[in-house]
């Protein structure tokens, strides 16, 4: 009995140590879901998918492509698909080699007007 409790505590401590970088930030959901509504409605960016599932670190995107402040990018006039194809913003990774290219799988990121209302509903 005592043995198993020790194992559980050890496992909990280990997982805490592994999750350290995440916990070190100011929030545990790595920034949450971002819903862009410009220039078109709407694109859903999930921090969960990119950080937890794909294993990206913060500075991979927030060093160059995106500022830390959410939705800042959509104020820029060059926040367009054309710009993405040239390697800016999401296009830095979504270029067909690191991740699926920006000109494919449109509705994977574009959740549309329906997606924006669903996101607001949650």
């Amino acid at each position: 009995m005592n043995k198993s409790i020790t194992v559980i505590i050890a496992a909990a401590l280990m997982s805490l140590a592994l999750a350290g970088p995440g916990l070190a930030g100011d929030n545990t959901n790595h920034g949450g879901d971002i819903v862009y509504t410009k220039p078109v409605k709407s694109v859903l960016f999930s921090h969960k998918v990119h950080v937890e599932q794909k294993g990206l670190t913060c500075d991979m995107c927030h060093a160059r492509s995106f500022e830390m402040e959410a939705l800042k990018a959509q104020e820029n006039p060059d926040f367009t698909m054309e710009s993405l194809y040239q390697g800016n913003y999401c296009g830095a990774c979504h270029n067909g080699t690191m991740a699926f290219a920006s000109n494919t799988r449109c509705a994977s990121c574009h959740t549309g007007v329906k997606g924006s209302t669903v996101a607001q509903g949650h």
Binding site: V40, C106, A107, V113
Partner: peptide
């Protein structure tokens, strides 16, 4: 069909 992003413009 694959180009539609439901922007609803």
């Amino acid at each position: 069909q694959d180009r539609c992003i439901d922007c609803e413009r």
